[in-house]
Simulated assay, not measured.
Amino acid sequence: MTQLGFGPDTRPLSVLRAMMRIQSTPSRSLDVSEIHGSLLRAEPGTALSKGWVRKVLDQLSNMQMIRVENESESRKKYISDINTIVAGLEQLKGRTLSSLEKRRAALQARSNELSAFNFSDVARVLEGKTAGRAQQPNSGLLKGLQSYADFADAEIYEKAVPGDVIRIAQLQLRPFRGGITEGVNRTLRAAESGAEVRCLVTVDVLSADDFLAEVFPENALVEFFVKAYGARQKGLKLDLRIDTGHTGLYHLTSLNKDNMVILVSEDPMAAMWVSRRFNPDLIEAAIASFEQIWQGLTPLIQDPKHPELGVPTTKPSFFLEALKAAATIVASGGT
């Protein structure tokens, strides 16, 4: 009850207890004098007037903790029972939850604003005004899904033009819960812009049937595969391949050999972005590892008559069933 602001040291609770101590039956009503006397006996030495008790009784009445039997000021009597107490606590709970929800919404708004804020711009302006230099940051730590998505959008997907290559190595899905559907659509948009998209996903990720069913509600994954087949038929360079468990592969998203985001922590989610100016050797090594594995894998989304090509196992799974359903739609001329 302390969380409701009705803790053991509050005066309203002291008065309520004083009533409960002298009620011989739950239906017996009490006047102010009786309640005042019970309170003084429970707390000897306190100078609590009847007028003060009346004020607290009014509070309890407004809180629905007690019921007033007679509205006449001189003849007012009060009743407290299990029903009034439950009603009062429920009202307090509702008020408390409403207050907490407002605070939560305000904190979430501040959190979103802070997460989306680009401190690189602040640092660049500060350095420019102070030292007269105009530099661009070339690395940084990204904390949380929103920061990861914002950077990938601004520095990779939105900068990609025809002829560019976007490489995606998806070793984990769970850190991206809540942003997976948008991430899938992002790859489609990048291919439609003319960039070549190479997406490598591990078989472990695709074996998590329950998780995939949760993050791809209804037919969302089928719809993606239908669009992916359509993109391939239009000559767009969208390629998906499944890795069976090579070592030395980073979870990454990169644009050519210029910018790269590497996942470094799942919980809490954190990623490191690096530019070629910051560490060309790291980017070269990561992409070389990606390409070595990529070249040995069979492409998916090639022939809708044989959707299982490129899938390491043909046993039923959420992923394979969605792929087959999409292939059936495409083979029948649907979109």
Rank of each mutant, 00 (worst) to 15 (best):
Y78V: 02
E214S: 09
D267S: 14
T187Q: 14
Y157D: 03
V197C: 10
D303F: 15
A322L: 00
T187M: 14
S80C: 13
F216V: 02
E73Q: 08
S289N: 13
S27L: 09
I329L: 14
E266D: 15
A326M: 03
A116N: 14
K315F: 13
S332V: 01
G128K: 13
E182Y: 10
L255C: 10
M269D: 02
G310P: 11
T298A: 15
L4G: 11
P44F: 10
N279M: 04
D267T: 03
L30C: 14
H306S: 12
V56S: 09
A231D: 04
S115C: 00
E101L: 11
A331V: 01
L240E: 02
I166W: 01
S24D: 14
G5V: 10
N112T: 05
L188I: 11
L238M: 10
I156L: 04
R41T: 07
G178R: 03
R17T: 12
R241H: 09
S147E: 10
R186D: 11
L200Q: 07
I156R: 00
P280Q: 01
D153P: 03
E90D: 05
A87C: 08
Q292P: 00
R198C: 04
Q64C: 10
L282S: 04
E113D: 11
E155V: 13
A288W: 00
K234E: 12
L212M: 13
N62I: 05
L4A: 07
L200I: 01
S14R: 10
T130F: 06
P175S: 13
T328F: 06
G248A: 07
P312I: 01
A228E: 08
F6V: 05
L323G: 06
K76D: 00
L300R: 08
L249K: 00
P304K: 01
R41V: 07
I287P: 03
E158G: 03
S38H: 02
F290I: 04
